[in-house]
Amino acid sequence: MEIRLGSVLLIAALTSGCSWFHRGAKAQPEIVPEPADADTSIISPQVQRRVVKTPKIKAKNFEVGVNFGALSIQDFGTNPLYGVRLAYHVTEDIFLEADVARSKAGTTSLQDVFPNITVLSESGRRFTYYDLDVGYNVLPGEVFLGRGRAFNTALYAVVGMGAVKFAETDKFALNFGVGTRILLTDWLDMHLDVKDHVFETDITGRTKNVHNIEATLGFAYFF
């Protein structure tokens, strides 16, 4: 059974490989030699088929970039944060965004008073999140640098959901925030974002909603 399945796979793979190969090769027009005794008074038409190629316009709706900044983890201080962003612009108003970022918690104020207490293990201090967001460009506009330079900008709001892994447990988290985007060139933009990640936790003994606010600077490439 496995051999038969294998041979089917092999044949399928080889035939598709051949088709790729065929795609790569330039299709040469076949030249049919004229018969020697052809009547030269009759002009045989040598019409070549015209290849109609509709030109394509490149769309640049995707954005991929990096963010750096600070994350204030509730009860655990403010710490550096770094992450990546992928966005897709659907209309001039709406975009979808996915973010992944990471930070590391510091110590609680309790630990500053009693240094021997351990609240979180070394790996538990890692704060990692991912978000799926929808964004709306609330205030599109322009900013000016001196007399001769203008950059397109947008002040936007985002809201979404995702998961936060902190203290070695994964929690469902909601997030919302505002940001501004400045298009430096057609393919590069700069972001400034402030975002809050809210989730329920009992790390400090009592179950409560914690707010973790981040402020980041990011750069992204449009493609």
């Binding site: 640049k60 709706n61 001039e92 599109p140 057609d186």
Partner: peptide
């Protein structure tokens, strides 16, 4: 000036002239 309904018109191309399309973003073409 920008890819949005509120941006000001900065240039007008008349009938018979041609434009080069560089790329598109959402519903706008540069």
């Amino acid at each position: 000036a920008g890819p949005g309904r509120g941006y000001p018109v900065t240039y007008v191309v008349g009938r018979g002239d041609s434009v080069e399309v560089l790329f598109s973003r959402t519903d706008w073409f540069k």
